[in-house]
Amino acid sequence: MSLLLIAMILVLLIPLYDAWKNDNIWQKMLAFASISTKTAILILFISVLRDDWAIGIVGAIVLTVGNAALMLLANIIKRMNET
């Protein structure tokens, strides 16, 4: 199971590299969406692994809040380009 988690963390590095190297703001937003979903899935996976409900509910909330934050930020950046 530990090996599977290490593999998930390595996959997490791919959008991290993209957010670092790509200068386009929308590509960065895509990387942010990818990372916030991946970290939430990792939290949920670990919660199942440890059979800990407290971590599990935090994972679910992080998954939801990540999406909401992304939508708010995307709206503001979109309006910046309009004016």
């Binding site: 937003m29 942010f32 916030s36 970290t39 992304l70």
Partner: peptide, 14 residues
């Protein structure tokens, strides 16, 4: 860009 990366940092910290 820094704000987007701050979001990534928040996700990783959580």
């Amino acid at each position: 860009s820094a704000l987007v990366i701050r979001g990534i940092l928040g996700a990783v910290a959580a």
